[in-house]
Simulated scan of single mutants.
Amino acid sequence: MPSEYTVHVAIELSLSSWLVAFRSPGVEKSRLHHIEGGDTTALLALITAERLRVSTKLGAETIDVACCFEADRDGFWLHRLLTANGFNSYVLEPTSVLVNRRARRAKTDRLDAEGMLRVLAAWLGGDRQICSMVRVPSPEEDAKRPHRERELLVQERQRIENRIEALLFTQGIRKRPSLRSWARDMDELRTGDGRAIPPLMRAELDRFRRRLVIILELIREVEAEQASALAAAADNETAQKIIALQRIRGIGENFSAVLVREVLYRSFANRRQLASYVGIAPMPYQSGGMDRDRSISRAGNPRARTTLIQLAWLWLRYQPGSTLATWFRERVGTLKGRTRRIAIVAMARKLLIALWRYVETGLLPEGVEISQEANAMA
């Protein structure tokens, strides 16, 4: 908790300039300063000068400084810089700040900075409902980058493949040529009315092919880096969790890396906290005599949530004898459509909790089969 002698600092970030707002103890009006965007030397000098000015004015030897800024494209390097220089730093979650929704609001950097000052002072004063502060990741979370890069590359691969198929479909061709025999297949392809592929379209398709080959090479490169990094850090606790998940049939290298590095590397007090972090916990609705659970919040980690839903579908295929798969079949039966999609989310939540218990305690989910590679190693 801050002392009574605390200088509140709000930094409104933008590409070209930063607006730094100060509010001294016992003073309602804020002081504003413009500096060039990214000029950390000027920022640190401003904060140091303001602390010295307040210390001289109040005659206090110790003046605390509490800085805040909104989480945006600048990331968290500024938080680490301020903390390393002895200033308390807080990162605001912009969408969590309570605002007046009765009419349109004026939007200026000055109003935003002064608003952050009020929010910071209230939050430090004990009002934890006025906003949410971001949990700043440590530099060690750089390990998340490989699977996130792979995800982007896979999306790009899918986009290029879809574009190739769409161009061929406009000519009445429903089969995509193989990358291994591209030139021969393209020579043999004929449009729906019996013509060869037009030369300009063929040139465009060849460029798409080259881009696709590069993307596939990059995916293999990232996967090789992931495997080598995992082998090099086999004694690390996070790496051990990834290896433990890979022992389960149906969970591969990518799924295990995403689940552990996005979710299971953290500590959770209970299963509801775990499900809330991923955004698959149901939202309660109670009003009068009505008391029920609504749909999931979708407020957690979207990448982990998507991966978990995909894994739940694969679980039905690779772990048909498990208790979870049996529960799903008994619950859904032969029903299709919306009911099945709702049930798979519920199963994904149960699966997440079961895998969490497994990596923390070593207790395998009931009825789970171990992969053949794990059996061979054993």
Rank of each mutant, 00 (worst) to 15 (best):
K107G: 10
Y318M: 01
A234W: 09
G194C: 00
H147Y: 10
K350L: 05
E28D: 11
G125S: 07
S138L: 09
A269V: 10
E253L: 07
R338Y: 09
F255R: 15
D235C: 01
P177I: 06
V91E: 06
V154R: 10
I342F: 07
E237R: 13
Q319V: 03
G362K: 06
E93F: 06
S89V: 07
G250P: 14
I130M: 09
I280W: 01
M377R: 14
L216K: 11
E373T: 13
R159V: 00
L46M: 04
L124F: 11
M290G: 08
V20M: 02
Y5P: 12
L15V: 06
R135Y: 04
A143C: 08
I344R: 04
A233S: 11
T48G: 02
L167T: 00
I342V: 05
I130H: 14
P139I: 09
W315S: 01
L324F: 04
I242Y: 09
R73L: 12
L111E: 06
F69N: 07
E4M: 07
C68W: 06
L179D: 06
L259G: 07
L316I: 00
T361K: 14
A71C: 08
L81H: 05
A143I: 13
L44N: 03
V258C: 00
I215T: 02
C67P: 04
S17V: 08
E4Q: 05
Q129S: 09
R303L: 13
G289P: 08
R341Y: 14
S267N: 13
V7D: 00
W77I: 14
V213T: 03
I164R: 03
M186A: 08
I251V: 15
R266P: 12
P177S: 01
F169N: 06
G279M: 02
R272E: 09
G126F: 02
A325C: 05
A122S: 15
G26S: 06
R292T: 05
A21S: 06
Q129R: 10
S295N: 12
E114L: 12
T307N: 06
A106Q: 08
I342P: 09
E360G: 01
E223M: 10
L52W: 15
A269L: 13
R220F: 13
S138W: 12
P137C: 04
D193S: 00
E114P: 11
D293P: 05
R292C: 04
A49P: 05
T361F: 07
T83M: 14
G37L: 00
L98M: 11
M377G: 13
R190T: 04
Q129A: 12
P282M: 02
N100G: 14
A71P: 06
T170L: 08
V97E: 11
A257Q: 07
I280C: 02
G125N: 04
D127E: 02
R271T: 14
I248R: 03
G126V: 09
L324I: 04
A275L: 07
V65Q: 02
V136G: 05
L44A: 12
V345S: 03
T40F: 15
R180W: 14
V54D: 08
T95Y: 15
A233P: 03
L111C: 05
G333C: 07
E70I: 01
N162P: 03
S228I: 09
T48C: 01
A71Q: 13
E204M: 10
C68T: 14
I353R: 06
T40Y: 15
A281D: 10
G333M: 11
G194E: 01
S17Q: 12
W77G: 14
V258G: 02
R51C: 02
R159D: 00
S256H: 08
E161S: 10
